[in-house]
């Protein structure tokens, strides 16, 4: 299992386009990927899950992956968040 903590710095948080981009990126990996916010876990490959998390700008989230490409997956998602989704 591999995990990293990251803060959402883009203006819209994980709402609009960023949510789609996040899910699309997560779906590229075979590992199970979860996003943890306030002690609750959401499936990183589920757009409805990510939207219902309601993570706005400034929210701290943990990205946790378990599987063959766990480290790669988490790193890619952290990078995506840090790039502010190209906003």
């Amino acid at each position: 299992m591999y995990r990293e903590t990251v803060v959402l710095k883009n203006e819209t948080g994980l709402h609009a386009r960023p949510a789609s981009l996040f899910v699309k990126e997560a779906s590229k990996y075979v590992s199970d990927i979860k996003v943890e916010k306030d002690g609750k876990e959401y499936n990183a490959k589920s757009i409805m899950g990510i939207l219902s998390m309601g993570a706005a700008m400034g929210t701290t989230i943990n990205i946790i992956a378990d599987g063959k490409d766990e480290e790669e997956a988490v790193k890619a998602l952290v990078e995506l968040v840090n790039s502010k989704f190209g906003e």
Binding site: A19, S20, K24, K45, S46, I47, G49
Partner: peptide, 16 residues
């Protein structure tokens, strides 16, 4: 058009 790209993701949403 992006909205419909999101619709596609919803129709493929594993949790759903």
């Amino acid at each position: 058009a992006e909205i419909f790209s999101a619709h596609k993701l919803m129709l493929e949403d594993p949790e759903f």
